[in-house]
């Protein structure tokens, strides 16, 4: 008896409790995955289903009448193509600039003997708790004449404090001996930064790159604030937001009104409905991120842990 108890306790045999617990837990996890994925898969199914057929409802996980017409329609829309270009551009430029600047400051404040190590860190961290708020920031952008320009997407966010702390923690964790031997070889700080720290920091760079890229790609509010009167600088998320607001305001909107100003030029071969356009835009706006994040999982899990512990 006692021998059996010992064996089962150590985990060679599963007890009845284990079986019950596991079956409840596994079923719950499957349910959780369904809840997480269903809304998205449903919209994907609607986006590849014939628009008039979708109106009848009853599309769940699979399309009933398969078609790419909704995508064809959306990609014909000049405002959509334009907004994709801006979204890609701000994601690429914003991420590159932010990575470079954040890594450089992180390198400096990770140096144990840097004279302003503490004060620079403090004035950055303070901004996590204090900021001017929406209106003063808006007026600053106006005074700097950034409103109506592309740079209003890049300049205000070149260094994120959280990312800075994550990077600093990582660089501080690099073995000191590397720096010392480089110093003996006569390497200056810039050489060390470019030749040693950047290549060794690839895991944390991947994490921060993901954070910044997701942030940039998902932005719509700064478009709304600063560039809503400039149709050449809107982003994909902003276009989707307009569709969402339209469909909230007017449940019976017609296809033409789903895009402001698209008018009657729409191709009659591509019959579309607001429901289909919205589903298609939802997928277009999220697919790039969904394709990328699983591959960086290993890194961002580490990055999150690092940033929160410090």
């Amino acid at each position: 008896m006692s021998k059996e108890k010992l064996r089962s306790g150590i985990g060679i045999r599963r007890t009845r409790e284990d079986v019950i617990f596991d079956s409840i837990n596994y079923s719950f996890m499957v349910l959780l995955c369904i809840v997480m994925l269903y809304p998205f898969i449903n919209q994907f199914a609607v986006s590849i289903n014939e628009a008039n057929d979708s109106i009848k409802g009853g599309i769940y996980l699979l399309p009933r009448e398969f078609t790419w017409n909704n995508y064809a329609f959306v990609f014909q829309e000049a405002s959509v193509v334009q907004s994709i270009v801006i979204s890609v551009l701000r994601t690429v430029v914003g991420t590159a600039v932010s990575l470079f600047c954040t890594a450089m400051v992180a390198y400096a404040i990770a140096q144990p003997n840097f004279m302003f190590k503490k004060s620079v860190t403090i004035i950055f961290v303070m901004t996590m708790y204090f900021n001017g708020g929406l209106i003063p920031t808006f007026l600053l952008m106006r005074d700097l004449q950034l409103i109506g320009t592309f740079w209003v997407y890049i300049l205000p966010g070149i260094i994120g404090v959280f990312n800075l702390i994550v990077m600093r923690s990582f660089i501080e964790g690099l073995p000191i001996s590397i720096f010392e031997s480089a110093k003996i070889d006569g390497a200056g700080h810039f050489t060390m930064f470019f030749r040693i720290v950047l290549p060794l920091s690839l895991p944390v760079i991947a994490t921060v790159a993901l954070f910044v890229a997701v942030f940039q790609w998902n932005q719509w509010f700064d478009v709304f604030l600063y560039n809503s009167s400039n149709p050449t600088l809107t982003t994909l998320q902003y276009e989707l937001m307009k569709i969402l607001q339209n469909s909230n305001a007017n449940m019976s909107a017609t296809a033409a009104s789903a895009f402001a100003g698209s008018g009657s030029e729409s191709n009659s071969a591509n019959m579309v409905s607001p429901t289909s356009i919205r589903a298609t835009m939802t997928i277009v706006a999220s697919v790039p991120i969904i394709m990328v994040y699983p591959f960086l999982q290993k890194y961002f899990v580490k990055g999150m842990t690092l940033g929160a512990v410090k």
Binding site: L37, W220, L244, S286, I289, I290
Partner: peptide, 16 residues
């Protein structure tokens, strides 16, 4: 799978 919605924008999430 559980991380996925975190990466979607609020515009997409609100639409869903």
């Amino acid at each position: 799978i559980s991380y996925m919605p975190h990466f979607l924008s609020w515009v997409v999430a609100a639409s869903l």
